[in-house]
Design a protein around this nucleic acid. Structure first.
Lengths: 242, 242
DNA sequence: TGAAGTCTGTACGTCGTCGTACATAGAGGT
DNA sequence: ACCTCTATGTACGACGACGTACAGACTTCA
């Protein structure tokens, strides 16, 4: 079976029973996800589902005015394309690559075929979807009540959890688009974090120096999402990250 | 079968095939949902699922500080207790009755038993869950970008869609808690709407006089949710409401 | 080496919402 | 009729985020 090792880097795939893996894996192909690539647009009928390994994909809604807001973020703990098995076939959001990397994709129909066997894949995907729901709900809360500074911390932590190492490759402009705030707002917040010695950044590269402090500066939203994800997706626990 | 007529007032139940109804309905009991009743608390293991008829239930997150934010709203188009069949058994949000009325409840295990037959109920519930996801996503967007005035309009419309008539029974204080804003902010916004002749209110009773205008004053979020709900839940179309 | 483009820093006035405080008015009970 | 409670109205300073404008610094490429 090709890519067998790489496929295991997606925790959701790795958690599937061997027989399910044997049916699915032969049909999966690896794809490079460059920064900014749009996997699907609002209203598009989904053709593939994507399982990221070291890539991160953001689901965001783009308003009529062009302004945007991130709904949730997906990395190696999950998949992009939930609407396929939920029955809607499309969503109102856009899926865009927020951190370049590798993913595996599978024809939607193949996923649905396996889903409709009503075995382990169904239960795994539904649990993942609930984790996604929790993240979306907390995004709504965070948007309502928390400052840009707090939201930036939350966002950095969510991204960090889905990457190896402690470096993020992304400009402040990009972060601003995700959070749905001005770029200057991110500059201010990031400047404060840098002065506190929590992060260090330079032209699109952000090093996290003090993760513990970052967590303490974040609002409760990160911890809520993280805790619920760990509960719902035991296979994806980031136990090495404190 | 008892309550047969009443049960049909929940559009999701009404849309189920007869054989599914015949298995489920005998186990359902009607319950009064008084204003403010908490159906479940954050972290509670869900025991029942609830199918509202003329009641409206809000899912909201309560922060450590006590402040809250509504995540989504559920009426006769759906059910409360999605986490039961998604596999998590509990959620991070609270379910609280926002508009008193009647609902039918069913033991969670009964629902799961039928869900695990992998028939019509499964597909219906998953489609409903996707509609719920859309609503939550749009709540996040709305919280980020829109004014209290716009959000109030959206919120009134969402509630109106789930009730008969054009009167809402709810104080500004309650609305403020749902939207996660100050009561004074709601007073200001509602005052403006009243001066425009769109609504008329008096001590906890709000009459909507000009629904069309209300829609035009609302942000795009309402239309997005409504359109997607109509698409995903064809059985729940509010075709009589323009 | 110079030019163009990208990324980040800073400033200033405006606006919406917040926190707080207090006033008014209708409803219900005795 | 009186009191009490609840719901709503109004005001004011504070603060965070916005829109806008522009400057500086680094990178890339000719």
């Amino acid at each position: 079976m090709p890519h067998l090792k790489g496929l295991q880097e997606n925790h959701l795939l790795a958690a599937l029973p061997v027989d399910v893996q044997e049916r699915l894996f032969p049909h999966m192909e690896s794809v490079e996800l460059p920064l900014g690539k749009v996997l699907y647009e609002s209203g598009d009928t989904l053709r593939y589902v994507y399982f990221p390994t070291n890539a991160i994909v953001s689901l965001l809604y783009v308003m009529e005015s062009g302004a945007s807001a991130e709904i949730s973020v997906v990395g190696n703990e999950g998949l992009i394309g939930v609407a396929l098995f939920m029955g809607g076939e499309s969503t109102t959001s856009r899926a865009i690559v927020q951190s370049a990397g590798l993913a595996y994709r599978l024809l939607g129909q193949r996923l649905k075929d396996e889903f409709n066997r009503h075995g382990a894949l169904l239960h795994t995907l539904l649990r993942y979807t609930q984790a996604l729901i929790t993240q979306m709900a907390q995004t709504a809360v965070c948007n309502r009540h928390h400052s840009i500074d707090q939201q930036l911390c939350r966002w950095l932590l969510l991204s960090l959890d889905r990457l190896e190492g402690n470096e993020l490759v992304m400009t402040q402009e990009l972060i601003a688009n995700m959070l749905g705030v001005r770029r200057e707002g991110v500059t201010d917040a990031a400047g404060r974090l840098q002065r506190l010695g929590v992060i260090e950044y330079h032209r699109g590269r952000i090093q996290v120096l003090d993760r513990a402090k970052l967590e303490s500066l974040s609002c409760e939203c990160y911890a809520v999402v993280r805790k619920e994800s760990d509960r719902l997706l035991p296979w994806a626990k980031y136990t090495d990250k404190v």
